[in-house]
Design a protein around this nucleic acid. Sequence first.
DNA 1: ATCTATAGTTTACATTTGTAGTCGTGTTTT
DNA 2: AAAACACGACTACAAATGTAAACTATAGAT
Lengths: 150, 150
Amino acid sequence: MKTKERATISDAEWEVMRVVWTNKQTTSREIIAILESKMNWKPATIKTLIGRLVEKGMLQAKPEGNKYLYQAAVSEEESVEEKSSAFFEHICNKKAGKTLAYLLEEAELSFDDVGLLEKVLQQKKQEAVTEVSCKCTPGQCNCKASYDEA
Amino acid sequence: MKTKERATISDAEWEVMRVVWTNKQTTSREIIAILESKMNWKPATIKTLIGRLVEKGMLQAKPEGNKYLYQAAVSEEESVEEKSSAFFEHICNKKAGKTLAYLLEEAELSFDDVGLLEKVLQQKKQEAVTEVSCKCTPGQCNCKASYDEA
DNA sequence: ATCTATAGTTTACATTTGTAGTCGTGTTTT
DNA sequence: AAAACACGACTACAAATGTAAACTATAGAT
């Protein structure tokens, strides 16, 4: 049924991706060096993850002598956005605002961040609606009756 | 190594939880009625998910005659927060602000939401720092050299 | 009292994920 | 050249997840 959608990056694989995203062009040796202690993984484990990421098309492996140079085939932004969107699919649209407020509270922000957020928020204020539309399947959220919400 | 952490709610299971969170007290019949068409799941599938959620301690099953009344054993807020925190562990602290800005842009917000967010943001402005501390393992983000960032 | 619809329990099975060992083959070192 | 090593490929294997059939007990219908 699935529209041949892009495979997802698992948590363990994500650790590897972060290394590759950080080091544009890297080797398995370097990835292993960076993750072995942080994750307490055996080199073999990391090799497996690299292999899977290549299979999934998330990593590109350029032959370099008898080994490979790895580089990301998907951007970090793109991936983060995908993962976060997936997360928001778990909650009702109407709860997005409150959830964002929560995340905001939890975050450590710089003045610049706050500035950026203020700007975006100002913009959102323009497009703000009186009532966010709930697209949930009946029975999966309590929005349908707008009057039963404060 | 893991501190006997609470099991997680998988995506499929999450669908069931949403029904239970919405209907404080519910029956498998109702859960099935709600999800069968939305998810294109067979009743058996939903029964399995319910069973697993009970095992995991996410659902409480109160005997009611020969069947059960199900209710959530964990709150939706708590669960959403856990899932979102897990997500933010995937990115460098320094990127949290930009990511939030992205999420904000993507969200459909009401005036109330904007108001709430403004309030929270004002508060964050107080506690804002000049530079967010990066806690990443070297090699997993580019923050270490604060001067190589604009 | 019997039949039947139903809810829960058990079993099933492929895929994904986490975690890793082994093997073959070049590469580096001595 | 021989030994050691490094890297990718292949294999392994348990747990989690998605998906569901089969079986069982039972409450309600007739």
